[in-house]
């Protein structure tokens, strides 16, 4: 018995220090400032971390109490988080859905509790789009198309392309593939000679490219669904004795800092920025939704394409 009490005692302060002054949330809802729950998908990439930081920073600046939850890449955790926010009675919820399906029941619950939900960076498939206030995201299809258009212009519509896909089944991977295929459809001499998933990872991008470059030595271009895979592929191309950026054109999507460094070094040719700094937009939407305004169902974040020639000038401005 003694031991048990001791261990309990040992555990309690640990919990207390972790949870500290968590009672703030309840108090602030009575005053003017808002309490917002943010259900983030995970922290798997620099892009994701930049998005989280953008939203946390914006919350601080606006004096909003932010309840943050990281689902660690699991949808079930994310649903739990949203339901937890609803039970807490937050004023609004920002949700960055991991996948597009499976949100109907929990969004209905939020609707019943009259808590508006703002979606960021990915849409959801629901029977009634009244279940969420608005979606703030990039257009993944357009991103793929921009990359294809640039490549078509640069190569004069002639290329043997190896495509590095993202995680199979993930919305950005599907849409970026679709957009790129639409983009090259008008150019019969632009062919995807091999397409394999690199799981959005740098290491996988390298490993897959090592294998593919040997099976398809006639490649002239690489299209990667994100910068990390492109950076891995560049290393594999170099090891295979090709000059990435000149012998083999490399285009990718996201626009992370490392991609700009690679462009400055002439190894990456262009990247389509997919802006993760959604904080200001998201909180504008949240404030309007809480005030009862009706919002447009989708706000498309404008993405820009950066070429190697712009890299040096743009690099200091990169936040992520």
């Amino acid at each position: 018995m003694k031991k048990r009490a001791l261990l309990l005692l040992a555990l309690t302060p640990f919990l207390l220090t972790q949870c500290g002054d968590g009672s703030k949330g309840g108090d602030s809802s009575s005053s003017n400032s808002l309490t917002i729950g943010f259900a983030q998908a995970g922290a798997e990439s620099a892009w994701r971390t930049a998005e989280t930081e953008s939203i946390t920073r914006e919350a601080e600046q606006r004096g909003v109490t932010l309840k943050f939850s990281d689902a660690q890449g699991k949808q079930e955790n994310q649903i739990k988080a949203v339901r937890g926010f609803i039970a807490q009675g937050v004023d609004a919820i920002i949700l960055a859905p991991i996948v597009e399906t499976g949100w109907e029941p929990v969004l209905k619950e939020a609707q019943r509790a009259e808590i508006p939900v703002v979606l960021v960076d990915r849409g959801v498939q629901v029977s009634d789009d009244g279940l969420y206030a608005t979606l703030i995201a990039s257009d993944f299809v357009a991103e793929g198309q921009m990359a294809a258009d640039w490549l078509a212009k640069k190569t004069g519509g002639k290329a043997n392309i190896i495509e590095l896909q993202g995680t199979p089944g993930a919305a950005p991977a599907i849409d970026r593939k679709k957009g790129f295929e639409q983009g090259i459809a008008a150019h019969p001499e632009m062919k995807i000679i091999a397409s394999q998933s690199g799981d959005f990872r740098r290491s996988q991008g390298k490993e897959v490219m090592e294998a593919l470059v040997k099976a398809h030595p006639n490649l002239t271009a690489v299209y990667a669904h994100n910068d990390d895979m492109a950076l891995g592929a560049i290393q594999a191309l170099e090891a295979a004795g090709k000059k990435p950026g000149t012998d083999v054109l490399v285009v990718s999507i996201d626009g992370v800092k490392d991609a700009f460094i690679a462009m400055k070094d002439g190894q990456l040719n262009c990247t389509v920025e997919c802006n993760p700094l959604l904080g200001p937009n998201a909180f504008d939407a949240v404030e309007k939704a809480v005030a009862g305004e009706t919002l447009p169902k989708k706000t498309v974040v404008q993405d820009r394409l950066f070429e190697a020639s712009q890299a040096a000038a743009e690099l200091p401005n990169r936040q992520y």
């Binding site: 995970g42 922290a43 290491s203 891995g232």
Partner: peptide, 14 residues
């Protein structure tokens, strides 16, 4: 070795 191989430390995925 994995870190040196991709010239980067990728804590989430390695």
């Amino acid at each position: 070795v994995a870190t040196g191989n991709i010239h980067a430390a990728d804590s989430a995925r390695v």
